[in-house]
């Protein structure tokens, strides 16, 4: 997608979903994430992927992806669960996504992209109804897969599962059709 289109999309408010000051600061920070040594994701890429995950599930009054250590989970998950083909696909689509993003932002290097640049990319690939040119299909595949991985990590998180979602390790009763608000106050069951 050319730069003009990207700017146009931001102007339409399709972007700017997740560009909060907190997220901006994540991208501006020179610090690398803690002392985590990724099992699968290349160490150089881990920070950008973590930040993208934070944009997908940002900190609100509930912790976001980075605080919940969802990037560490996703890294371990891919390493333990996926086979060679799935891993290779992920790496390939990640690389297409990176080069696509650099081009869209009109920059030289992925580390030069701003939060707004990344946000425009997420918006382009995650919002429904966007027509994508053929050379961006793989980039879109990467982003959609990252979102699924992030959500899976979120829902498999102990804090979210026990403290945020409705948690009932021993429900006791089984009732088939009940009022949602009465059952869980509107929340989904975690188990």
């Amino acid at each position: 997608m050319d730069r003009r289109k990207a700017l146009k999309n931001i102007g339409n408010g399709i972007g700017a979903i997740a560009v909060t000051p907190a997220v901006v600061s994540l991208f501006q920070s020179c610090q690398t994430s803690a002392t985590y040594n990724p099992l699968f994701i290349p160490k150089d890429d881990f920070k950008i992927i973590s930040n993208l995950m934070e944009m997908i599930i940002p900190k609100t009054d509930i912790p976001g992806a980075v605080e919940l250590k969802l990037p560490e989970f996703v890294d371990a998950y891919i390493d333990a669960v996926w086979d060679e083909e799935e891993k290779t696909d992920f790496t390939e689509t990640w690389e297409v996504f990176i080069s696509s993003s650099i081009k869209a932002a009109g920059k030289e290097n992925e580390n030069d992209l701003s939060a707004a640049d990344w946000d425009a990319q997420l918006a382009k690939y995650l919002k429904p109804g966007n027509d994508l040119p053929a050379d961006e299909i793989l980039a879109s595949k990467f982003v959609n897969q990252l979102r699924s991985l992030t959500v899976n990590a979120f829902k498999t998180n102990e804090f979210i599962g026990e403290e945020v979602l409705a948690y009932a390790p021993i429900p006791g009763e089984q009732k088939g059709c009940v009022d949602l608000m009465e059952a869980t106050g509107g929340k989904a069951w975690s188990l």
């Binding site: 979903i17 997740a18 944009m55 997908i56 599930i57 940002p58 609100t60 509930i62 976001g64 997420l122 918006a123 995650l126 919002k127 429904p128 979102r147 959500v151 979120f154 829902k155 945020v164 979602l165 949602l180 509107g186 929340k187 989904a188 069951w189």
Partner: peptide, 19 residues
């Protein structure tokens, strides 16, 4: 929900509700 909210705070909020 994924399709409509895409990502971000509203998406996160929606993902805490039943599908």
């Amino acid at each position: 929900q994924i399709a409509e909210m895409a990502y971000g705070a509203a998406f996160k909020e929606a993902s805490l509700k039943p599908g």
